[in-house]
Design a protein around this nucleic acid. Structure first.
Lengths: 218, 218
DNA sequence: TAGCAACTAGACTGACGGGTCCAACAAGCT
DNA sequence: AGCTTGTTGGACCCGTCAGTCTAGTTGCTA
């Protein structure tokens, strides 16, 4: 928690700390590629270049380590996704803005680390139901909420014909993530940038056909 | 493999067979609720009312048992989903037909067994990548393909304004499954029938706004 | 009646892995 | 110098579990 103090001069007093970060990093990598149950704590220690006891010093047990990772990653992912949604302003070309935000979101969502994160979470949610609480309010909910806000603004400005912005946000996201998900073969296949652009373009097309201004129904 | 022969008369010679079915059933239940790694073979045997050795007689090892289950369920799910898609004919009211098929698909897709199946698959796909091969061509692909065929027929009949039926099928499904998925909290929450109906109704609305006949753009 | 094939209960082995403990070490603080 | 805190390597304990084996049982077939 306490970063062992601020920085005094050039190098922070991290003569030996940062073990915690190293462990979190390594543990995520090992969990992701082997699964929580299969991954041995010794393997994680090796990957992190750390003694096994150090892991237990920091996290108590394997389960808490998992929780720490999930919590950590959820935080980071949320921030990134929110920043992208912010780009949906009404001073831009509508289609371009939607495609920009759509592509940004999808790109993060199908980035390798995020995919591993989702898989890990899905896999262990049965065994550790409280992981949902850790994540809840920090991911999809919040992002969809922010997106709904933006869409509502656009509707008010007369640029979209939306009745319920929450539904529109859900559907906008579904039109992008759904087809992309199919192409990713349950996250086992890496999606190319070209595919992503196609999906986004087609999704925004459909979204605008349904909710776009009267003139733009192509 | 050999069903101990065909049926001679009324009851097949299943005086004591059906162990295999019982094992598959029980194993799925145990795997689903505990996860593959956590689930012990002894627990499965108990649940199935069978001796541990019998399991090894039938399936050789735990891994093969998992594969058999996945294969088995994929087969069943495919048949059910396909039957539902068949109901999308052009001699019915368009919106009603779309809602009927949409609801049917969603209902199966979020039925408890199917949810467990997806979770189990997602969880173990890393450890056993060949599970994908077992399932591939038996699920989403085939169903989306059948759906695309139906949509193409409707387009030809002048009832939908679709250019690419494959894209339309993907997006139709995405408009339903996406919002439903959000509401299911990663499959941990059971979706009510009312919610499902709402999602379907809203999804079909949007789909028709984008692809419906000119007059019907509500 | 005998024979066969699947089934059963339970003991057993061998490996693996979470978690603990300990003696030694490295660094910062006073 | 000493104290403290975090770290290290490795031995160690112990529970769990996949998979094997055996001796005996059931029920069907001939």
């Amino acid at each position: 928690m306490a970063k062992t103090r601020a920085e005094p001069g050039g190098t922070p007093p991290r003569g030996r700390i940062d073990k915690r970060e190293a462990i979190l990093d390594a543990a995520f990598r090992v969990f992701a590629e082997q699964g929580y149950d299969q991954a041995g704590v010794e393997a994680i220690a090796a990957e992190a270049g750390v003694a096994k006891a150090t892991i237990y010093n920091h996290f108590g047990d394997k389960e808490s380590l998992l929780r720490a990772i999930i919590s950590d990653l959820a935080e980071g992912a949320l921030a990134e996704h929110l920043a992208i949604v912010e780009r949906l302003t009404d001073d831009r070309d509508l289609r371009a803005a939607l495609e920009d935000v759509g592509y940004g979101l999808l790109d993060r969502y199908f980035d390798e680390k995020t995919v591993w994160f989702r898989r890990l979470l899905a896999a262990e949610i049965t065994q550790f139901p409280d992981l949902l609480d850790i994540v809840r309010g920090r991911t999809a909910d919040r992002i969809m909420d922010a997106l709904a806000n933006r869409l509502a603004r656009l509707a008010l400005a007369g640029r979209l014909r939306i009745t319920d912005p929450v539904v529109a946000a859900d559907q906008f996201w579904a039109l992008l993530a759904g087809p992309a998900e199919v192409r990713s073969m349950m996250g086992t296949r890496r999606i190319t940038e070209t595919e992503l652009r196609t999906v986004v373009s087609q999704g925004v097309d459909t979204f605008l056909r349904a909710f776009g201004p009267p003139g733009e129904t192509a």
